[in-house]
Design a binder for these strands. Structure first.
Lengths: 175, 175
DNA sequence: CGCTATTTGATATAACTCATAACAATTATG
DNA sequence: CATAATTGTTATGAGTTATATCAAATAGCG
């Protein structure tokens, strides 16, 4: 759907040299003004994607002092709630493929937010656990998310709106 | 937020060799069962992203006989509603950066769905126009989207649900 | 027990998306 | 006219997502 970040106004260059007696076979350019989205503006997926990018953008901005991406944040949250789990379990729960999770964990571990420890029960697995620093950063991140990011979304949608939204999102996720 | 495609159940390997007298400093692995999402399940952005991926997945499947990605579809729709516009205008309206739009147009043009024509008014610009084939493919795509993809979403959300959803998405997009 | 199959973390790699810099041709502007 | 800006393009880099493969370790079974 080609939905990326901003939709800055389309260059709208000032055109003066209009209508110079259109030659046969000439290709006339359209004049200024914003373009029409057509059926895109009613396509749920299109509008949905735009909104999603906007939400993540805001998340990143709100958590910016802690330098955590949404993905990294989700890993830390999962580690906090699931002590003693290994890489594969954490990764697949978040929909991350195991090979891709390696570099991601490397990043978090090099920042001392978590550690890998070989399991004594299954020496293949690495148990991933939060460090104290990781726990502290996560606590601060959660506060930022709650007071800045989620607060803004709540203000936009209203309490009942948010509830309705979450209910619909659940339906969309499980079909 | 680490939200990718599926969330296939996390490997849940059968563990038998449990509790072998936990040594001092031993690292015990947690037992089976699905992991807890913690505050992720209430994080709008997390649930939102999952739903978004699901929607695009369905879009691609519905339009699969025509081999059109959401991004390509959005370009064709825009071309239909905005004849005489150049590459930059089309691209930026969709939030696509001009350099990235080149390869994308190459793809569509090589499939003869659209053509670039030098503007007679500004010989720097390429006017992008749908071909007859492009118009035909787009028409078929729109029918598939309406009767399969959007129909399914409507059935899930209900007519009023869909309206409420679109209204909230608009709010989210413009803050 | 011993052999095979499976699992785990890891590496390499490919495709795709997203972003920036720079360039030639062309046009706008002072 | 000289300089600046715009257009399409190329090159390139970062980031994400996906697959195949590997060594180490474990499971399963005759």
């Amino acid at each position: 759907m080609a939905v990326t970040k901003a939709v800055r106004s389309p260059a709208s260059r000032t055109r003066t040299k209009v209508a110079a007696a259109p030659q046969p076979g000439a290709v006339a350019a359209a004049d200024a003004g914003p373009l029409k989205l057509g059926e895109l503006s009613e396509l749920l997926g299109y509008v949905f994607k735009r909104a999603q990018l906007r939400i993540f953008e805001d998340f990143i901005r709100c958590v910016e002092p802690l330098q955590l991406t949404p993905a990294q944040f989700s890993v830390l949250v999962l580690l906090e709630h699931n002590p003693g789990r290994n890489q594969t379990e954490i990764a697949t729960t978040l929909g991350i493929l195991r090979p891709n999770f390696v570099a991601m964990l490397d990043g978090l571990e090099s920042r001392e937010l978590c550690v890998r420890v070989r399991s004594t029960q299954d020496r293949r697995s690495h148990i991933v656990m939060l460090t104290d620093k990781g726990r502290a950063v996560l606590a601060r991140a959660k506060r930022l998310v709650a007071t800045k990011h989620e607060a803004r979304l709540n203000a936009l949608l209203g309490d009942d709106g948010r509830i309705a939204m979450m209910a619909m999102l659940e339906k969309l996720t499980k079909f």
